[in-house]
Computed example of a mutant assay.
Amino acid sequence: MTTASVVHREHDRGVAVLTLDSPENRNALSSRLVGELSAALDDARSDPGTRAVLLTHTGGTFCAGADLREGGGPAKGTALLVELLRAIAESPKPVIAEVRGHARAGGLGLVAACDIAVAGPDATFAFTEARLGLAPAVISMPVLARTDPRAVSRYFLTGETFGPDEAVRIGLVTAREDALEPVLRGLRASSPQGLAESKALTAAPLRTALADRGAELSEVSARLFSSDEAAEGMRAFLERRKPSWAS
């Protein structure tokens, strides 16, 4: 029996379109999804016919963050996420995120790691980690490299939900969804060398952060996932109740 892929690949006039298709867990960052997405990014990187990568999704959620139901231990999951973020940052091909639904926690790390991100009118965003007894440790690297740190401080600490206009204002998202076609036209008109060298300039802060702090923040994330508070927060989330500390 063949298991259906959770990341679909298409090619559209020089753009590799990678579609997250795991709606049963809201495109959460399972080891399977991360593995397939990493492999697809690697293939796109080595394909001379690919000018850029478009990351999109099925269903009402772009990515819900960590798959809280998956086993294998927190260290494995955080290490895989660091490598995925590194694959996006180090690829010479620009990566564009198209967010038409909800993005939560680790899913916002994917959005921030991409070179360009556009959001549809129904997109919503939230850093929910603190409400679960966690912290956005690993994803802080791409997020803080892209966004207004004062605004991010608020959303890291409160877990509030915000929409596309606020995401654009703070720099998490580049523009509303109607900018996608002009962006793709521009990328298709640019040379491979021009794109690679221009990306090297804009992605430099993220590449440096991943090199300098990737291992450290992966360990922080794994430690938090293993804590008693996080266990209570994740149980409460899965049981659809408030955690013990919520008032």
Rank of each mutant, 00 (worst) to 15 (best):
V111M: 01
T19K: 10
P121T: 06
S191N: 11
E160K: 04
G101T: 07
N27Q: 03
S38N: 01
M141T: 15
D12G: 00
E10G: 06
T19D: 02
S247D: 14
V53I: 14
R26V: 00
R69S: 09
H102F: 09
S153R: 15
R169S: 14
A145F: 04
E181C: 02
E129Y: 04
V183C: 08
S190M: 12
E90C: 07
L55P: 08
L108H: 01
A215E: 15
E239C: 05
V118T: 11
A203M: 08
R45W: 02
S218N: 06
S31M: 00
R241M: 08
M234Y: 04
F62Q: 13
P243S: 10
V118A: 12
L206K: 06
A204N: 06
G101N: 04
A52L: 03
R45P: 04
G35W: 03
T19P: 02
A52N: 00
A196N: 08
V183W: 01
S218Y: 09
R32H: 02
E83S: 13
P121Q: 13
R169A: 15
S227Q: 10
S153W: 01
C63T: 04
A204F: 00
A66P: 08
T161W: 11
T78A: 15
G186W: 07
S22M: 01
V168S: 03
L55F: 13
G133A: 05
T208A: 14
W245V: 10
G106E: 10
L29I: 03
K76C: 10
Q193G: 14
R176Y: 00
R188E: 12
R176C: 00
D228V: 13
T161S: 02
F62H: 02
A103F: 02
D12M: 08
E24I: 09
E70A: 09
T208H: 08
E181Y: 05
G233C: 09
L201F: 11
Q193V: 14
V17T: 02
V183S: 00
A137E: 15
L206R: 11
V111T: 05
V7Y: 11
T124S: 15
R241F: 05
A123K: 05
A137N: 11
M1D: 07
A231P: 01
V173L: 08
P142L: 04
L157M: 13
K93L: 12
E232N: 07
E229M: 12
F225Q: 12
A130D: 05
E239G: 11
P192K: 08
C114R: 05
S46P: 01
L180W: 11
A97E: 00
L37T: 04
T2I: 08
E24F: 04
G101M: 06
S221G: 15
P142N: 07
L18R: 08
G107P: 07
G120A: 13
R146V: 05
R241V: 14
I96C: 04
D47V: 09
A44V: 01
F125N: 06
G71L: 10
P205Q: 10
L81Q: 14
L217Y: 14
R131N: 11
L238Y: 01
T202D: 06
R131D: 05
L81V: 13
L134S: 10
L108I: 05
L172D: 08
